[in-house]
Amino acid sequence: MEIAYFPGCTLKTTAKSFETSALAIAGSLGIDIKELPEWTCCGTVYSLAEDDLMKQLGPVRTLARAEGLGYTVLTTLCSMCYNTLVQAKQFVTKDPVRLQKINTFMEEEPDFTGVVEIKHFITLLQETGEEKIKEAVKNDLAGRKIACYYGCLLLRPREAAIDDCEQPEVLEQLMQWLGADPVFFPYQVECCGSYMTAVKPDIVARRAYRILENARENGAEAVITSCPLCSFNLKERQKDIKAIYPGFKDMPVYYFTEIMSEALGITKTVENS
């Protein structure tokens, strides 16, 4: 069954390697995903204002287009897109009056009904299953100690979570299938500071420091994520961390698909670009 793929803005720029590696993985595992011919920015953060339907237009328009093309499942890579799409769908479909209002406003689009299911790419990999993924492994990641960082938006709020919101294990499970050794990592669900990076980068640097040091204390040699904003905060803010904590040593941060494509033999070794 073909699945619609919604990339979101950042996957086309700073997170290009996330998209490239994920599409290669999908191709090699036979997960049939196809980018939507037309999509708009989801808004990146779900609007929490109940009285402002305009802010839901971005995500809902994309969902309506996917439904119009006959898709019943849509996937995304970015945690923020995932969360925004899921929460927007829940909000709009919860109330028939709201749904009708938004459909009337977007009269040029096919009606949105809510049938399209939003699944994060991690969920698609989970559904592909242990056996198939293990079979596809070419370069076993044996001995690689990986800290799986989930951040906020794959897990919270509960209604949007892809796994248990306090003790998730989907990424650890995936890393184990690839032969890697996921480490105990209590800070894996702690927020990195998110959009504060645009206004208070020092706060984000301090958050990132605690998260990365917690990974290191538990023996990790690298941290993986599925969010382009977490990735930026944990990776690019390392320069700011050094200004605050001079003894800080670099910690590699990868998208989970970069590590995975290495294991599947698609790329040689991942670069911490």
Binding site: T13, T14, C41, T44, M80, M196, A198, P228
Partner: peptide, 9 residues
């Protein structure tokens, strides 16, 4: 900054 940071801020 990545778009995601600017747009969300």
């Amino acid at each position: 900054l990545p778009q995601i940071a600017l747009i969300s801020a």
